[in-house]
């Protein structure tokens, strides 16, 4: 495996990750507590696990669609960067409950489409700042169905674990 070095300084990509993590966890701690510990833990972990599974499946050889961070080698900062997904997963379910979407089923489609668009927006910032480096013909539009799928799966998991009577 050849190692591509994109940059070797602490610059925009690292700062973007730190800003997203700080912002995400600030919102997480400021929001009134709505959920039990288990609901909170599951939704915080969900984003991290999904990010890891996809990155370490489609971004490794032979597919190798993109690199994360300063090098194509997996670095310790890359490992840390996955924590930025944790508050996003929580916020996603928090707003889902806050907007009372479990009772308004058709609005759920719009909700998932909206959050997938947010995901694409954040990913685009990630490309501009050097968090993601696409390879082998990968395009940002390919990520949209992945967002749709994983966000719908999170809603299903939430209902399966915590809403089923």
């Amino acid at each position: 495996m050849t190692n591509i070095i994109y940059d070797d300084a602490f610059n925009w990509n690292e700062w973007t990750v730190l800003i997203i993590i700080s912002l995400g966890f600030t919102i997480f701690f400021l929001l009134p507590k709505k959920f039990s510990s288990t609901v909170t833990v599951v939704n915080l972990l969900y984003g991290v696990v999904i990010g890891l599974v996809f990155d370490h499946t489609i971004a490794i050889e032979p597919l190798d669609f993109y690199d994360v961070g300063d090098e194509s080698k997996y670095q310790l900062f890359d490992l840390f960067s996955y924590t930025m997904y944790a508050p996003v997963g929580y916020l996603y379910i928090y707003l889902y409950e806050q907007l009372q979407l479990p009772e308004k089923k058709y609005w759920l489609i719009l909700y998932i489409l909206f959050w997938s668009a947010v995901g694409i927006g954040v990913e685009y910032i990630g490309i501009l700042t050097g968090i993601f480096h696409y390879k082998n013909g990968y395009k940002i539009t390919y990520s949209y169905p992945i967002y749709l799928f994983v966000q719908a799966l999170q809603i299903w998991l939430y209902h399966y674990l915590f809403k089923r009577k």
């Binding site: 972990l45 696990v49 890891l52 370490h56 080698k73 997996y74 310790l76």
Partner: peptide, 19 residues
């Protein structure tokens, strides 16, 4: 979730970071 996080990182650190 937790075992996936540990296992994926163990494998990728071994393959990619430390070769």
């Amino acid at each position: 979730f937790v075992t996936s996080i540990v296992d994926i990182n163990k494998l990728t650190l071994n393959i990619s970071t430390f070769s």
